[in-house]
Design a protein around this nucleic acid. Sequence first.
DNA 1: GCCAACGTTGGC
DNA 2: GCCAACGTTGGC
Length: 159
Amino acid sequence: MATIQYWLMKSEPDVYSIDDLKRDKRECWEGVRNFQARNFMRGMQVGDLAIFYHSNAKPPGAAGIARIARVAYPDSTQFDSSSKYYDPKSTPDKPRWSMVDVAFVEKFSRMVPLAELKSDPELEGMRVIQKGSRLSVQPVEKSHFERVIALSKLSRGAG
DNA sequence: GCCAACGTTGGC
DNA sequence: GCCAACGTTGGC
């Protein structure tokens, strides 16, 4: 059995939240328009786990867990001129952008705010807590992934 | 709303 | 290939 990889995927909850994924159970992760983030998605395997992160939220933070349900395939919105994700430089025979499908795993009983991720010594070096980090899809170390889950199970201030 | 960070584009 | 201009992300 292959070792699974761990990821963090950002979404603005006003656009698509962990509650939306809980309702939908499974959804395609459309709209990634950054090459580095796209390349990370192309490295994902079915069964990989991702922290579902709420960006541009009050407060921003880790909101739950999703599982990769389908490996990367062309993002159809890039060919749709009515979509805000339309990319006129992309053609169906040479698609620029990919997406994966993600499935709902869990919504944290307590979302872990970014400020708390930043203040946790065990999460030192995690990409999402670095100043100016804009990457919307990023790999996460297993120890960091497990630590975020552990934090979600603590009541604030406990421990 | 502000603005720092940083990715992309395009002129040269 | 350089780099300035521009657009976007995203915390605060």
